[in-house]
């Protein structure tokens, strides 16, 4: 459990980092907290020949920018909980990130690292998809914005290209009244989820006007419940018929099947967690109204 040989480069500025990534292409990986990449390298499942240390880069801001909240790629997980802008605008995000790892992981691990690593049941990819985030990817050539739904392709596979790195995400601010909740099921606290379900609602104080639901553990990348909006629009916040909606939106879904959790067990968790997240999101909306 020692990594294959590699060269280490410390970048002081973004342009330096991007130049190094451009120079080494597929053979290079940026490294920040190392919470995913280092174990993968120690198991020799990842074998980058060049590591570009980006810890010194100025990419750790959280700020409101017109109609969205920007979170820099080097923001450590432990910061989300202290950020009132997140609690205020993105309750599902605030709940979801509480499930990330343990304190040591949250102290070092970064937003950009988790997203780029793209574990199939990590919280941040699911939250990005749920909240319609745009992932900002930069290379020596320039910058592009990738909708989260197109960014996560499969387990540990993203649409990032050689020479590109994530520099941050933009979360669009909800337009009207909104609410949200996140539920997760894992064997132990801090583990990657067996199933997680995130919900966001828009509402007018009495009824749901739109809804989004995301699941992880269904497939190798986060999955949006296609019919969530249609099923929930117009339902009263006081009695959203959560169980029936959760059943209906997960009908026909065939989740992953492995020794830890069968497809049948996962499906049952999808229904239960979706129902619980939906119920709590409605309760929060009622309290706020």
């Amino acid at each position: 459990m020692r990594p294959a040989p590699f060269s280490y480069h410390k970048a002081e500025r973004l342009d330096q980092a991007l130049a190094l990534l451009a120079e080494f292409g597929e053979d290079a990986r940026p490294i920040a907290g190392g919470q995913s990449l280092v174990p993968m390298m120690n198991l020799r499942l990842a074998r980058p020949s060049h590591l570009v240390d980006i810890n010194a880069l100025d990419l750790d801001t959280i700020e409101l920018r017109s109609d969205h909240l920007h979170i820099g790629a080097l923001v450590r997980h432990e910061r989300y909980a202290r950020e009132s802008l997140i609690a205020q605008h993105f309750p599902a995000f605030a709940e979801g990130v509480e499930w990330i790892g343990h304190p040591t992981i949250r102290r070092r691990g970064t937003l950009g690292g988790s997203i780029s690593h793209a574990d199939p049941t990590a919280e941040l990819p699911a939250l990005c998809v749920l909240l319609g985030a745009e992932i900002i990817a930069q290379s020596a050539e320039g910058s592009r914005r990738i909708p989260a739904a197109e960014f996560f392709i499969s387990a540990y596979v993203t649409s990032l290209e050689a020479g590109e790195m994530v520099t941050g995400i933009d979360l669009p601010l909800p337009k009207g009244k909104s609410s949200g909740a996140f539920e997760e099921f894992a064997e132990r606290s801090g583990d990657f989820a067996i199933i997680s379900a995130g919900v966001t609602l828009e509402h007018d104080g009495r009824a749901i006007t739109d809804a989004r639901v995301v699941w992880s553990g269904v497939d190798l990348a986060p999955v949006m419940a296609e019919r969530a909006g249609d099923l929930l629009r117009g339902k009263p916040l006081s009695a959203p018929e959560a169980e029936a909606a959760a059943q209906a939106m997960s009908a026909g879904i065939t989740p992953l099947d492995d020794p830890m959790a069968s497809a049948e067990f996962r499906h049952s968790l999808i229904v239960e967690l979706t129902q619980r997240a939906l119920t709590r999101a409605c309760e929060k909306a009622m309290q706020a109204s």
């Binding site: 174990p39 198991l43 064997e187 132990r188 606290s189 801090g190 583990d191 990657f192 830890m260």
Partner: peptide, 13 residues
């Protein structure tokens, strides 16, 4: 073959 899959009891549980 790693602690991600071989689950040990944690203080939290």
């Amino acid at each position: 073959t790693t602690f991600a899959d071989y689950l040990m009891p944690l203080a939290t549980e």
